[in-house]
């Protein structure tokens, strides 16, 4: 009962989505629209679940006070300020919520990822070695693309941008297509296993 009904639900939902591709008329189109609407709403509650979990973890940290517990206060305060700003005064351009987005969320998010530039440079120097013929091929391809795809490449050799574009459009594209087809077949088989109830790990537990 605890697992049988969810498996039946998965089957029905999956089959409706597949059938409406081939029979895009009523009632399948109506059911599809209904399911689409329900999906969007239920997915929000999944987000709320994740949020609830985050707040729960940090609330527990405040109670237990392990090392560095005071940073949880920062997190919860930040959450509270942003949440109240949004729910209290709206999210339009020019609102407090919008101000906090542009001047706190945005710079921190951008800078977190900007750090990666330094680490990729460091990793390139320390770890990128042409140990095998395959690694050499990877390295040569990377260098040709890196130089060919910036304006500097044109000044080194005027054919370099064309070579870079050719590598991207043909051999790279061929490799990416092979990967894409492989992934697609994997997704198809996994989706089929899920819909038919063979794959049940997403249900978890007993």
């Amino acid at each position: 009962m605890k697992k049988q009904i969810p498996i039946i639900i998965t089957f029905i939902a999956g089959m409706v989505m597949i059938l409406q591709y081939f029979i895009p008329h009523r009632p399948f189109s109506d059911i599809q629209q209904l399911f689409n609407t329900w999906y969007v709403i239920i997915a929000v509650f999944a987000m709320i679940l994740g949020l609830g979990n985050l707040l729960k973890i940090h609330a527990i940290r405040l109670q237990r006070r392990p090392k560095g517990w005071w940073y949880s206060i920062v997190l919860l305060l930040g959450f509270a300020v942003m949440f109240i700003a949004g729910m209290g005064w709206g999210i339009e351009r020019g609102s407090l919520f919008d101000f906090l987005f542009w001047n706190t969320h945005l710079p921190m998010s951008s800078t977190m990822f900007a750090l990666l530039a330094f680490f990729v440079a460091s990793a390139s120097y320390r770890a990128f070695r042409a140990r095998t013929s395959e690694a050499t091929l990877l390295l040569v391809s990377a260098i040709l693309v890196m130089v060919g795809r910036v304006p500097l490449g044109n000044y080194i050799w005027d054919k370099l941008p064309l070579l870079g574009d050719w590598i991207m459009s043909y051999p790279n594209m061929a490799g990416q297509r092979a990967i894409m087809i492989g992934i697609a077949l994997g997704v198809v088989s996994t989706s089929l296993r899920i819909i038919l109830g063979i794959e049940r790990t997403y249900l978890g537990g007993k």
């Binding site: 260098i143 304006p151 500097l152």
Partner: peptide, 19 residues
């Protein structure tokens, strides 16, 4: 783009030097 070009040049230099 100027910064992009120079930074790429520096990283390629690092890679070649390391190898």
């Amino acid at each position: 783009m100027d910064a992009q070009s120079i930074a790429h040049g520096v990283i390629i230099f690092f890679i070649i030097l390391a190898n």
